[in-house]
């Protein structure tokens, strides 16, 4: 499916066209499930999140026209934000040991290597300008949706240090993206 095809399915879904919605689900649910599962790290939880994500897509498809995102990125953004809200609401307790030990890849993994295209090239290039460890933290935070509190605990630094540290990375990233 081309991005134009996905766009058409989203527009038709906004008109409450169930056939289009079914096809949109078939074309995109495995990717959006990948998003939910990576963030929530639990299959049953991710399945419930995916249900809620598609309920949102059905009810909010008309907002797509107001976004500058590509259709698939728009869908991923809905899934990511929903999964992150969900895990934030649940995970108030301290981290499990195995999660705490899981450290972001120090070297750019296959994910980073697979980035392609204009915008992709830009974010990739800009991440490379950051310190390796910091680039990995940004990438890991994005993919896993980790909070400042979790990142601080994992790196063994106070929360505010973590904030300052990541904000500096974001400022650098912004400066690079705007060049």
């Amino acid at each position: 499916m081309t991005p134009q095809d996905i766009t058409k399915l989203i527009v038709r879904t906004s008109m409450k066209d169930r056939a289009a919605f079914d096809l949109l689900y078939r074309q995109t649910s495995s990717k959006l499930f990948g998003v939910c599962l990576r963030v929530l790290n639990d299959r049953a939880n991710a399945e419930e999140a995916l249900q809620e994500v598609f309920v949102k897509i059905w009810t909010k498809a008309d907002r797509f026209a107001a976004s500058e995102l590509s259709p698939i990125s728009w869908l991923v953004a809905i899934a990511r934000n929903h999964a992150i809200d969900r895990i934030r609401a649940r995970r108030q307790a301290p981290l499990a040991i195995d999660e705490a030990l899981e450290v972001a890849d120090p070297a750019p993994g296959p994910e980073a290597a697979a980035l392609a295209g204009d915008e992709a090239g830009r974010i990739k290039g800009c991440l490379e300008e950051l310190d390796k460890e910091r680039a990995a933290a940004v990438r890991g935070a994005y993919l896993k949706g980790e909070s400042y509190a979790e990142l601080a605990e994992r790196h063994g630094v106070p929360l505010n240090t973590m904030r300052t540290w990541l904000r500096r990375s974001l400022l650098k990233l912004r400066e690079c993206l705007e060049r």
């Binding site: 079914d22 689900y25 649910s29 495995s30 990717k31 499930f33 990948g34 998003v35 599962l37 990576r38 399945e47 995916l50 249900q51 976004s67 500058e68 995102l69 590509s70 990125s73 991923v76 953004a77 990511r80 993994g109 994910e111 980073a112 697979a114 980035l115 295209g117 915008e119 992709a120 830009r122 974010i123 990739k124 990438r139 994005y142 993919l143 990233l173 993206l177």
Partner: peptide, 22 residues
């Protein structure tokens, strides 16, 4: 920012979903 960071989403794998979800 969603546009800037969207390319990072290639890191998410596609995973089959149980039919019960739909």
């Amino acid at each position: 920012w969603e546009v800037h960071l969207a390319p990072l989403a290639v890191g998410y794998p596609e995973i089959d979903v149980a039919p019960s979800v739909k």
